[in-house]
């Protein structure tokens, strides 16, 4: 479905962030990308979504070279991205965002079902502005809900667990598992969370802008145990 071929990316000041990243993500299931802070995970997500352009290398989606396509075109081809840092808008409501994300006017039932997936009650939130008045955890949940609303077959979630309280965690994980069943597509989840690693069909470790490890979760378990990745939760 998605292929990154020999991707290099450096910051405007010339610091190399991604070094020869090649990945092929196919079929269906949950792919977790993990690794130390600053390793380049979000940069990979931005390159997939078209927010950043690679300095060299190419990106293929369903066999088509999309390297030169912008964010809009990639979104229309079926790529979704839940940002690590959600964006706030003065004057746009939760309903507005969900409608835009799904590309049509959603009815109350649909909105309710989307928000309940992320543990929010539609009654309390649909008419609220997605502005500074929402808490960190609330806006993060709404960000995730917008990607659920898109129902695309390729979705990237960048640290969806950040700011989500412990009690809501099982529900969120359940939502990712449901999506895996329903969409039959790919969910790429960038995460540092053990419980998210636990539902992964495949785990990719990115460190220093390189693919450090790539494999089935159980194969990776021992590698992670050896604490090669300081940012991940300590494994006993």
């Amino acid at each position: 479905m998605l292929e990154l071929r020999n991707i290099y990316w450096s910051t405007p000041s010339g610091h190399e962030v991604l070094h020869d990243i090649s990945l092929s993500i196919d079929g269906s299931g949950i792919v977790v990308i993990t690794g130390p802070n600053g390793g380049g995970k979000t940069t990979i997500a931005k390159i997939i979504a078209g927010i950043e352009k690679p300095d060299s290398g190419s990106i293929l989606f369903n066999g088509e070279d999309i390297t030169d396509l912008g964010v809009t075109e990639r979104a229309r081809k079926g790529i979704s991205y839940a940002f690590q840092q959600p964006v706030r808008f003065k004057g746009l409501t939760v309903r507005d965002l969900l409608d835009m994300a799904s590309g049509r006017k959603l009815d109350e039932k649909e909105i309710c079902s989307l928000l309940s997936k992320v543990g929010l009650c539609a009654k309390d939130y649909v008419e609220r502005d997605v502005d500074a008045s929402l808490s960190g955890g609330e806006i993060k949940r709404i960000e995730i809900a917008t990607v659920f609303a898109r129902k695309t077959r390729f979705s990237v979630f960048d640290e969806p667990e950040a700011g989500i309280d412990l009690w809501s965690f099982p529900r969120l994980i359940g939502a990712f598992e449901d999506l895996r069943k329903e969409s039959g597509g790919i969910e790429v989840i960038i995460s540092h969370q053990e419980r998210i690693l636990d539902i992964a069909d495949r785990v990719i470790v990115i460190e220093n802008g390189r693919v450090k490890e790539d494999g089935k979760r159980n194969i990776l378990d021992s590698l992670l145990r050896s604490a090669s990745c300081p940012a991940c939760p300590k494994r006993s």
């Binding site: 979504a49 964010v71 809009t72 229309r76 835009m100």
Partner: peptide
């Protein structure tokens, strides 16, 4: 960028 990522 956020709204473009919805296809707008």
């Amino acid at each position: 960028l956020k709204l473009c990522s919805f296809g707008l």
